[in-house]
Amino acid sequence: MTLERLAYASPWRRIAPSAKALFCACAMAAAWLTATPLGACALALLLAAITVAVARTPWRDYLRVLRAPLGFLALSCLTMLVTITPGDHGPAGWRLAPELLPPVMMTVTRAAALCTALLLLVLTTPLGDLLGLLRRLRVPALLLDLMALAYRMQAVLGEAWSDGTTAQRARLGYVGRRQALRSMAALISCMAVQVWARASALQAAADARNDTGELRFLTPQFDRSPRHHLMAALAGVMLVATVLAGGPA
């Protein structure tokens, strides 16, 4: 998981998640408020530049992370740019509709701006730290417990999955498509059966440490310099104000 690795390595990890989340929320608001494709595009580029140049995410990794959303964008835009030529009796045929370009451009650039805002947050803040933030934002306890457990266990299960497929490959489990499907099904069912055993082992471990029914952890302490929050708020408000004033265009 590239995102995870980059977030833990990010020099911005030490900044309080609340400050980063505040800035990204402002950036997202600005993206919604932008009226022109040019403005949204400028915003996206600015956010990407901050992520790469200021938060020092390696640009190659950044591009790799962008691949999935860009694929979705390309496919969807193509779909939106195609329409039918109405004939006398129903549709006469498909055609490219260049007149649709402006609204599609707006959608694309806005999506890019929102997407780069989200990436700025998740590339500098590991999910573990975001969970701490959600705890402070008073998300329902059950949902938080679920997320905390799922985050820890997805790493454990992911490791078990990769060990399992490696062992299967060593015994030629993926030499063909049929074998692959069979191997995968065997591993999934085996791990699904283990879900109960793992859950009860975790429960025993929690009980051994005096479990009270709610998974309580210390919220991480960040160097909560008000400076970071102030800077984040200022920068965020400036973004929104710029957009409201008509954008850099």
């Binding site: 573990g128 905390a148 457990l149 471990a205």
Partner: peptide, 10 residues
């Protein structure tokens, strides 16, 4: 089977 939180400290 006994660690259920993301970070060591937690």
């Amino acid at each position: 089977r006994q660690l259920f939180s993301a970070h060591v400290e937690e």
